[in-house]
């Protein structure tokens, strides 16, 4: 109960701060963001776009964790949890791709330019798509759970290549790329030209979206578990 109100206030604060705090050249007070040359007001996307990409990976992580759990204990409830996490992950993956593409048209000049991070979010979308295609092709519940669990683990071990390695060794437009002028040698994404209050609100936004994801996932799998329970009851008569 308390954490729901906390989430409400946190995300409300993040949207107020992220949208309305002014961007000025020399920030004086705590509610002013620094000016990033070439981006100006466009820089505010970081509070809403990056969390969706983050949730894509988190959704995949949770899905894989419950896949491993399923392979160990063979409990079909774990498969349901993994399924719901992947479903939410796919939704946020599409959101990240679309918001990124719309933004890129105005900041970089084209909707899609095969920047390494665009490639990696596209690969994640392909993985999710392949995963759901595999699930729909198998009839028996246990077989479906086992094979999709194996595939999601197999796909998960390739994710570090997309998320961490490729963007750093290939040339790109996102911060942290191999040819980034601001952070030579391809440092982590966050320390590009952000001052401390921008960073703080960015991390608050990540936390708020993660809690939101947890809540949606929780509601999703609880309703599916109830559905399965009712199905069993009807079969037993």
């Amino acid at each position: 109960m308390v954490w729901k109100i906390f989430l409400f206030l946190l995300l409300a604060f993040v949207s107020v701060a992220g949208i309305s705090f002014p961007i000025v050249e020399n920030p004086q007070t705590w509610y002013q963001f620094p000016l990033i040359p070439g981006l100006e007001e466009n820089a505010k996307i970081i509070f809403f776009h990056v969390p969706t990409a983050w949730l894509t990976v988190i959704g995949f992580l949770i899905s894989t964790i419950y896949s491993i759990k399923y392979l160990r204990k063979k409990n079909l409830d774990d498969d349901t949890k993994s399924y719901v996490a992947a479903q939410l992950g796919l939704i946020f993956c599409i959101l990240a791709t679309v918001t990124g593409a719309v933004w890129a048209k105005f900041a970089w000049g084209s909707y899609w330019s095969w920047d390494p991070r665009q490639t990696s979010i596209f690969a994640l979308m392909l993985i999710y798509g392949a995963w759901f295609a595999l699930r729909s092709s198998i009839e028996s519940e246990e077989k479906k759970a086992a094979l999709s669990a194996v595939y999601s683990i197999l796909a998960f071990v390739t994710v570090p290549f997309f998320v961490f390695i490729m963007p750093r060794i290939m040339d790109g437009l996102h911060p942290g790329s191999a040819d980034d002028k601001f952070t030579p040698s391809g440092g982590p994404v966050v320390n590009f030209k952000m001052n401390s209050n921008m960073l703080l609100i960015f991390f608050l936004s990540l936390i708020a979206f993660t809690i939101l994801f947890y809540w949606m996932w929780n509601i999703g799998y609880r309703s599916l578990l109830i559905k399965e329970k009712l199905n069993k009851k009807i079969i037993r008569g």
């Binding site: 798509g129 295609a133 094979l147 997309f162």
Partner: peptide
């Protein structure tokens, strides 16, 4: 080989894994 649709699914499943 354990799943139902054998021919069509193979490139779909392999491509994301082989992409890196």
């Amino acid at each position: 080989s354990k799943a139902g649709a054998k021919g069509t699914l193979y490139p779909v499943l392999s491509f994301p894994i082989l992409l890196p």
